[in-house]
Design a binder for these strands. Structure first.
Lengths: 255, 255
DNA sequence: GGAGAAACGTGAACACCGTTAGCGGATTAC
DNA sequence: GTAATCCGCTAACGGTGTTCACGTTTCTCC
């Protein structure tokens, strides 16, 4: 303990007071161990008592850091969204800035790769919602992190719209109610105002849903009965998907 | 207890010996209660002790009927697949036999409707696979029931192929490995041999994946941020999907 | 009809789990 | 130096899946 007791305020520590630093370190350790247990045994294998045991603590002590096991899992969700987002960003950054097609393909492939490499984590993020959706508009940290993750793709899709990549099929009978909601969604998520017609957003949403379907099916292992070489099937779907978006398909780099 | 004790064998009971009947009745009661708990509190809310308590039994007694909680859940899965299949069959039967389009649309809508009306059940069937896939090829009752459910749609898709509904895009570079696996899948699931080219199956699989995506997203509540009127969005997706299959879209019956 | 086997359900026990309440000690703030 | 705050502990409550040994009921077979 080599601390000069003269000025207790200054100190200029990395972040906040000493208490806050050690507190945050403990919090991080809890989440790291929880993550390991999640990876090893799935979401149901994460238990406060086991985490505390591994840390040399007792379970009630963890309640100073997380209000409940569910809150811990929510915090984990937020971290995982960030991790997935970082993986996507990295993949995107591996492509030239101007190459919208390459960046989108790389981003989508990165999501699949992350999901396959982190099945339980992916299931926690995109599986059935255990908790009823937060009443207040997205006050949960997980939902907020999820929106930040989504914004990555919103930005990419926005570029497609701006570049006028795909022709929106003039919907013969798009219900006005749906149009209104899609427009609201557009402005809320920051789509470029004018060009983002409800029709365009429907195309993008359709593609996202399609992508979600293929990745979930593969990660959740509901396609084992058809083939064990999912890579090529995924790429075939990706090709179709790209075509719908006016994106030039390119096979993945043989790395 | 008015039983004539003369001939213990004959009796001509509905099925099997008396022992087997009461055993099956108990087994059915267990599954019924488990189903109620599943509906009310999700898969994690199904507990042997609670079921036993409700039956006036003790938990170890249930082990005479199911080897473990997981086996119970698997049996439940099988029953739910059958229930979902029955709902789909009923919807299909509401359309004229010759009306392939109407039958397919009705069947797909039935899946969505069942999922929305039975969220936890749907999650158990189509959510992340908790147990690693059975080593032996589909010896688990759940997997077997799942295949039976799938066969309903296989038959419908088969009709589309037989009727030559959609033109398969001649894949420029369908990998031979994938083609072989798709062909194997075709013969295994009973697609009509010759017409079911790997290309056609890819189209069908793509549509199925797309459908899976939209329904899962809705049931798992990962689309709450875009709209709360999912019905119209689903129908819009369904329209696109039908177009890919050469199926004439028709709005749902205003019932 | 009676002996033996098979199935059934129970009580006790083991090892876990989430969560709450109350307490003592360390750290911080004033 | 004193008061407030935070921290981690113990103890406890009620819940879980699962195993084992035991008595009772039921069936089978001679």
């Amino acid at each position: 303990m080599t601390r000069q007791p003269t000025f207790h305020q200054v100190e200029a520590a990395p972040s906040g007071t000493r208490r806050e630093r050690v507190r945050q370190a403990t919090s991080r350790e809890i989440k790291e161990i929880a993550r390991r247990h999640l990876t090893a045994h799935g979401a149901s294998g994460v238990s406060l008592r086991a985490i505390a045991r591994e840390m040399g603590m007792t379970a009630p002590g963890l309640y100073r850091y997380f209000a409940s096991l569910n809150h811990l899992l929510e915090a984990l969700q937020a971290e995982l969204f960030a991790e997935l987002g970082a993986a996507v960003d990295a993949a995107e950054a591996s492509q030239p800035d101007s190459d919208t097609d390459g960046r989108l393909l790389a981003a989508l492939r990165a999501v699949r790769a992350w999901g396959l490499a982190n099945r339980p984590e992916f299931a926690l993020l995109f599986g059935p919602a255990g908790t009823p959706p937060a009443s207040s508009p997205e006050d949960s940290p997980a939902a907020e992190a999820g929106q930040r993750f989504a914004s990555t793709f919103v930005a990419l899709f926005d570029r497609l719209i701006a570049e006028g990549r795909f022709t929106v099929p003039d919907e013969p009978e798009a219900s006005p109610a749906l149009c209104a909601q899609l427009d609201a969604f557009a402005s809320l998520t920051g789509f470029s105002g004018d060009r983002a017609s409800a029709g365009a957003i429907r195309v993008l949403l359709g593609c996202w849903v399609r992508f979600y379907g293929i990745v979930c099916m593969e990660v959740f292992q509901h396609l084992g009965f058809v083939s064990d070489d999912m890579e090529t099937l995924f790429e075939a779907e990706l090709r179709d998907l790209a075509a719908d978006l006016g994106v030039a398909y390119r096979p993945p780099d043989a790395r």
